[in-house]
């Protein structure tokens, strides 16, 4: 009797697991299969391996242009985020600025501020500052919404550094900026790489902010290009944009964020200041 109950429970458990993985992995293989299939978008049956879709992506001007736009925007955003968050975090951790606690509380407010509720005033301000349809507009706004998290993060990293080196610098009369650049930054290289990569990945994935700010097609980043492609063409089998081509493009677009995820998860594990960085 007990044996049957146990068997029943095991059956329930494994059928749950099986149903879950079937339902949840439906969207995933489609992308890969279509990208390598020369026969277009037939999911079942006909499959013929090819790399033509990938070489076609590199010959298509609009696709490459959108990848380039994404690269420019996310590099700008990541560089801005890394520099600014390092400076603020160093200031909070070491320089004891006035109103430190209220600054931290403000950061917490920004961290939880939902973007979609301030979308309209942000658009108004961005169009007033002529930031629409530029690279710098999305970069600055992405940076602003990433800053709170990365300031907290780099603060935690810098606080774990031993104080003695910086005390030596003070004895030698080296300025705070020099101390930050020459002493602190080289010591937390790994953490800085992680911060740069993580902010790059989240800027690379960002969809809502470019959606709000960019209307001219030659400034579309890749994420927005995918979205507008769906809306314009549906899945119709057009001669210029076959599903295979587009699946290949999506795979190429996805690659950096997956690589960054793996790099931050696996390789930076060795860094002594990792644990506070690799939380998310």
């Amino acid at each position: 009797m007990a044996n049957t109950r146990k068997l029943c429970k095991t059956a329930i458990k494994y059928s749950f697991l099986l149903t879950f993985i079937i339902v949840f992995s439906i969207p995933l293989p489609w992308l890969v299969i279509t990208a390598f299939n020369s026969l277009g978008q037939t999911f079942y049956g006909s499959f013929a391996f090819t790399l033509d879709n990938f070489s076609a992506v590199f010959q298509e001007y609009r696709l490459m242009n959108s990848l380039l736009n994404s690269l420019i925007i996310s590099t700008m955003a990541a560089a801005l985020t890394t520099c600014i968050s390092l400076m603020s975090a160093y200031s909070i951790a070491r320089l004891n600025p006035p109103k430190k606690n209220s600054y931290l509380r403000l950061l917490a407010f920004c961290l939880f501020l939902p973007f979609s509720t301030v979308m309209i005033p942000i658009y108004a301000i961005a169009s007033f500052l002529r930031l629409t349809n530029t690279y710098s507009g999305p970069a600055i706004i992405i940076c602003a919404f990433e800053l709170p998290f990365f300031i907290w993060l780099s603060k935690a990293v810098i606080e774990r550094l031993p104080n003695e080196l910086e005390d030596m610098c003070q004895l030698d009369g080296i300025s705070s900026l020099q101390t930050l650049v020459r002493i602190v930054v080289p010591n937390i290289r790994g953490a800085i790489t992680a911060i740069f990569l993580l902010s790059f990945a989240s800027a690379w994935n960002e969809l809502t902010i470019p959606f709000l700010l960019t209307t001219s097609p030659d400034k579309y980043p890749a994420s927005l290009f995918i979205l507008y492609f769906i809306r314009e063409n549906g899945l119709s089998r057009q001669a210029t944009y076959s599903p295979g081509l587009f699946a290949a493009f999506s795979l190429i677009y996805v690659l950096p964020s997956i690589l960054i995820y793996i790099v931050t998860k696996v390789f930076l594990r060795k860094d002594p200041y990792k644990s506070s960085v690799i939380l998310g």
Binding site: P27, L28, W30, L31, W204, N205, L207, A222, S223, L224, I226, L227, I230, L235, P243, F246, S250, Y253, V254, S257, I258, Y261
Partner: peptide
């Protein structure tokens, strides 16, 4: 991990 736009694209597919 995947970008939101690709997730949406896959869901439409």
């Amino acid at each position: 991990i995947l970008p939101l736009s690709v997730s949406i694209y896959m869901f439409i597919n």
